[in-house]
Nucleic acid binder design. Structure first.
Lengths: 216, 216
DNA sequence: CGGCTGTTTTGACGTGAATCAAACGCATGC
DNA sequence: GCATGCGTTTGATTCACGTCAAAACAGCCG
C-alpha cells in the first residue's frame, strides 16, 4: 500500500504496538485478531516443522502488511518475528471488515493487498522451483533494492536486516551457499559486501543473471 | 469453499463456461474481470519465464477457486490451463465486490478463500525450500488424497490429471526424478502406480516420510 | 491391426549445492 | 586489554538430483 493509504488506515484504527528485535508479533497457532501494517522496522515470517526445520516465507519492511495468513482458519499459520526494533499499526480485523463494507475503496485496497501477496508467493515459488543459487540471490537482491527504492531509500546501498541463514532459508539454500554466492558476485564486480552492508554496483549485470541462464 | 457455498454463489451469478482440455481459462497479462469457481474438472496454473522455463504454481480441482492473482494489478499474473474438459462458474469481480459489501458472510468467505491460498502457498514454499524429493512427493500425494476425500472421492485411489513433467515443475523436480521416486515408493510398498493411476497403500508410511527425515 | 506420437520408466554419468570442518571478524563484557 | 560467543567466510569432500540417452508403454488414427 502507498504511504498515503497507510496513513488513512492509521487514522481509522490507531493502536500502535512496539516489538523489540527478536520478539514475536504473533506465533503460529495464535488466535487471529488483527492485520498489522509495519510503521517502522523489519520482520520475517516463518513456518517451523516438527523436526526443527525452518522455512522463512517472507521478509517484510516498513509499509508492508502482516497477518493475512490468519484469516483463513482464525489462527495464524506462521510466526512473525521482528528483525530489528519495530513498530506496527494494529488493524483489528473485525473493524477492518466492517469499514470495508462501508468504504468501497478500502475493500478493494484490501483485496489488492491480499492478491499481491499471492502473486508475490508465486514469484517465490518460481525462485525456489526453477532457479539456480545465483539466480535466486540475484533476484533477492533486486527485489530488496526495488523495495528500498519504493520507500525512498537508496536502491543501490542498504543494510541487510537478516542473517545469511535466514536468507538461505527463504531461498532454499544453506548459509554457506549464500555466503559463497555473495563472494562470487563481489569477485565479479556485481556487488560489494561487507557483512550486512550491500552495495549494488552492476544492476544490469544482476538482471542478466536472473533471466538468462540455461534451463535447469 | 464448501459445495454449499459454491452453490450459493452459483445462484447469485450464474454464468458458466466450458473449457476443453489444454485450453486456457485465462493467460498471464489478460485483463482481470472475474474469479472462477471450478464446477467440474482440473486446472493447473503456471508462470512462464522468458527463457521458456515453466513453474507450475498450483493444481486446482472441482470446488476450488481460480483467478485471485488478478486482483492486485487488474491483470492476471499467471496462466490457467484445463487439464481435462472442465467447467467453471464465472464470478464477475465487480459484482462480487458489490455483493460482499451487502452480505457480510460472503465478504468473510471471500477473505478466507484468499487467505487460504496464501497459507497454501506458504506450504508449497516449505516443500520447495526445505524438503527432499521423497518428502515433496509424499506431501504431494497426501495433499491430493485429502482433497479427493474432501470432495467425496476415494482418498486411497485416484487418477492423476497431470503429467510427471507438471508434477515435477510444481515440486521443483525433473520428471525423471518424479518417476523414480514413484517407483521407489512402489518398491517400498507405500503406493501402487500404473501410469496415472495411484493407489495409496500405506498412508502412515507416507506421513512418516514427510515429517521424519533428518535435516537437509 | 500397425504405425505414429507423446509420456513414462530405467540406466549410466555429471554436477551444483549440501555437508563437514576450520578459521576469521566483530561485537560484548569483564 | 583479553576472553567469549555469534555470524560469516572459505576449503575439501560427498551426495541428491539433474542430464543425457535409450527403451518400454499407452493411446490414437488410418
Amino acid at each position: 500500500m502507498s504511504a498515503e493509504e497507510i496513513d488513512r488506515l492509521d487514522q481509522l484504527v490507531g493502536a500502535r504496538r512496539k516489538i523489540r528485535k527478536g520478539q514475536h508479533l504473533y506465533r503460529s497457532g495464535d488466535a487471529f485478531e488483527a492485520i498489522y501494517a509495519i510503521r517502522i522496522g523489519w520482520f520475517k515470517t516463518d513456518v517451523l516443522l516438527e523436526d526443527g526445520r525452518e522455512q522463512v516465507t517472507g521478509f517484510q519492511m516498513t509499509g508492508e502488511m502482516l497477518g493475512l495468513d490468519g484469516i483463513s482458519t482464525e489462527n495464524h499459520s506462521c510466526n512473525a518475528v521482528a528483525l530489528e526494533d519495530s513498530e506496527v499499526c494494529v488493524l483489528p480485523y473485525g473493524q477492518l471488515e466492517e469499514l470495508s463494507r462501508e468504504v468501497e475503496g478500502l475493500q478493494h485496497q484490501f483485496h489488492k493487498v491480499m492478491s499481491r501477496e499471492i502473486v508475490r508467493d508465486h514469484g517465490v515459488m518460481m525462485l525456489l522451483g526453477s532457479m539456480r543459487a545465483e539466480e535466486r540471490l540475484a533476484a533477492f537482491l533486486m527485489n530488496l533494492s526495488q523495495r528500498f527504492n519504493a520507500r525512498g531509500f537508496s536502491p543501490n546501498e542498504f543494510n541487510l536486516r537478516m542473517t545469511r541463514d535466514e536468507i538461505g532459508s527463504y531461498l532454499g539454500l544453506k548459509l554457506e551457499t549464500v555466503s559463497r554466492v555473495f563472494s562470487r558476485f563481489q569477485d565479479e564486480g556485481l556487488i560489494t559486501v561487507q557483512q550486512k552492508h550491500i552495495r549494488i554496483v552492476d544492476l544490469p549485470g544482476l538482471r542478466r543473471l536472473v533471466q538468462q541462464s540455461g534451463t535447469r
